[in-house]
């Protein structure tokens, strides 16, 4: 039987992040490359190749950045909530770092979604903004991200910050179905989903191709920046430990 000394337990704690560091070094160039390739291809197709919409002319091309960023905003919030839950239940050392590193990325995508939506709304609906269910719930999503970031930063003890922010992330999950179904539950200016109706999507296949490329590209971008931010968080943790050890010595 292995006798667990205190020192051993410490190294065990670092084992997972160390494995992650090795893994991340292998996949990093691939996700970064995939992101650049698919986004460039999506932009060329979406802005240059596919024909204008029969109703909206060229303004509909905003969709190729608006819809993927909306999906990313929701998806990354889901990742944040799940990893917060994993952090609570199993105390996995990487889980909270994943949630913490994801928050600014999700906030950026949500902001892009709102910003491009506003630029799309003005020529199509005649208004930059309207307080309807879809737009308001998306704004709430942005505030949930900002609240999470602020709460995490408000505590000196990172474990306490993770717990408080994690609770906020989990409570905020209620907003995700509200965003998703807001266009069906309430009257809204926002059009319903065009792409998720698998049996009869109301989008032309030539227009779906750049949309899919952009979604893959944004996913790969998320993976790329997440790896960078996670490595920075792991380095921070190591800096804290080294500082503590040198103060003690």
């Amino acid at each position: 039987m292995v006798k667990r000394t205190k020192k051993r337990a410490g190294w065990h704690f670092l084992a997972n992040p160390a494995r992650f560091m090795r893994f991340s070094r292998v996949i990093f160039p691939w996700v970064a490359g995939l992101s650049v390739l698919t986004i460039v291809a999506g932009l060329v197709l979406g802005l240059g190749v596919v024909p204008p919409d029969y109703q909206q002319g060229d303004a509909y091309r905003i969709m190729f950045v608006h819809v993927p960023s909306a999906w990313m905003g929701l998806f990354i919030y889901g990742v944040m909530a799940v990893s917060s839950a994993v952090g609570f239940i199993w105390r996995h050392p990487l889980a909270d770092l994943v949630a913490k590193s994801s928050a600014p990325i999700g906030a950026c995508f949500t902001f892009i979604c709102l910003f491009t939506g506003s630029l799309w709304g003005e020529p199509m609906w005649g208004t930059w903004w309207v307080w309807d269910a879809r737009l308001t719930s998306m704004l709430v999503l942005l505030f949930l991200y900002l609240g999470y970031i602020a709460l995490h930063a408000a505590y000196q003890d990172p474990t306490k910050g993770a717990r408080a922010a994690g609770i906020l992330a989990l409570v905020g999950v209620i907003n995700l179905p509200i965003v998703k179904y807001s266009v069906n539950w309430w009257n809204t200016l926002h059009q319903p989903a065009t792409i998720s109706k698998i049996d009869a999507p109301s989008i032309d296949p030539t227009m779906a191709a750049p949309l899919m490329l952009m979604i893959v590209g944004f996913m790969a971008y998320y993976a790329t920046v997440l790896i960078i931010r996670l490595r920075a968080e792991i380095a921070s943790r190591r800096i804290r430990n080294l500082r503590l050890a040198q103060v003690g010595a």
């Binding site: 902001f111 892009i112 910003f115 630029l119 790329t224 960078i228 920075a232």
Partner: peptide, 27 residues
Amino acid sequence: MGGYAAYVWPSFGAAAAVLFALFYFSR
């Protein structure tokens, strides 16, 4: 952009600016 240049290009420009900035500062 069929007369919609003032809406289409700022959309993509802003998205590019935000994503590049996030990448740069993270790195």
